[in-house]
Design a protein around this nucleic acid. Structure first.
Lengths: 185, 185
DNA sequence: CACCTATTAATACCTAGTACTAACTCAGTA
DNA sequence: TACTGAGTTAGTACTAGGTATTAATAGGTG
């Protein structure tokens, strides 16, 4: 049974959401219309051709992969004095929150703080041994987190205290015991 | 000045590493050879055509985006009894480690443990209040982490203890204080 | 009936290739 | 000197998955 134009275009949008790699030919087959009809639909809906869609995805995600796991610090470092202190900035985006309530997932705040604590330690390889965390209040989507790390102890293990603020308000506290690893192990 | 075949092919590989969206035409222009030469080079090196490369990237990253930030638990849940205990599994891949030494970054172990602790709590919205962590030994690329969470206290705040093992060997310990958030806040 | 919307058909053209055949260049060598 | 072979270039036919355009057709409505 054939669908109306509106229904078909709606289905088309939904289908491409899930399977962005459909050719016009395949879509025509699915909805029992000609390939030209599908093309008119794409025109009206402003959907680019298959190759354009593929390329957009590849580019978007190429950038994302580059920026997602920078080897250094999670967030953007704005200040750094080795063995003394450092500051970093992280804006809470879609990918950091529970979709259900828009609250940032704990491990992103932890990641910002922990990676900053490690960056501030002046060593080839620094690793976290222990950490004590306090999530003072939930952080919402869109909030801008400023993490401030201070080295509080240098004898034996290095201790770094990190406080994270959203506009002057403390939202997270962490104390990290960091050690300098030997190169051979 | 023209390069030798070997040099050209080497440069080609490097160029595509950085800019995967180069057409044969563009590459031919860059190295001052004909388009056919570039195609022979791609044959020898086993490099697929532009559209194939773009599609591969798009597909790989499409999957990655889907799996990277699942709204639920980081890692794969293998057991779960609400308010009692749970187990999850996470294999340490490239994206989890410092490229310099192949050691897993702390926040991934934390993410596995923390999200499991939250999942085991039977509530609409559970959030971490405080946590105490011990990174017992560095975890290497390729190691398979099994996190075991047990609810250890239910009066007032819920306490969840998580131990993470690599083949029977304890690598991470965490104690999480989790609270059940009200829906309105 | 004319008119309109939706659909289909047909054609020329495009990009970025594959697959194949043929020719040319040049350096080394018998 | 002529021959050989690797490397390169040229040309042709063909492909997928389209764009852009024009034209024809079907079905319903005032």
């Amino acid at each position: 049974m054939r669908l109306s134009k509106k229904e078909r275009q709606q289905k088309l949008l939904e289908a491409l959401e899930i399977e962005p790699f459909l050719t016009d030919e395949e879509m025509a087959r699915r909805y029992h219309v000609s390939i030209q009809t599908i093309r008119l639909d794409r025109m009206e809906l402003g959907i680019p051709e298959l190759r354009g869609r593929i390329k957009d995805m590849a580019e978007k995600n190429f950038d994302r992969v580059r920026s997602l796991y920078p080897d250094e610090v999670i967030g953007e470092v704005t200040e750094l004095t080795l063995d003394v202190g450092a500051t970093s900035f992280l804006e809470i985006c879609e990918e950091h929150v529970f979709t259900r309530n828009g609250i940032a997932r704990g491990h992103h705040l932890f990641a910002q703080a922990n990676s900053l604590a490690i960056a501030v330690v002046d060593a080839e390889t620094a690793l976290t041994a222990t950490a004590s965390l306090r999530f003072v209040r939930p952080v919402q989507l869109g909030e801008k987190c400023v993490a401030q790390a201070r080295v509080t102890q240098q004898t034996g293990r290095t201790q770094v205290a990190v406080n994270t603020f959203v506009e002057e308000e403390l939202v997270f506290q962490g104390v990290f015991d960091v050690y300098r690893a030997k190169e051979d192990e």
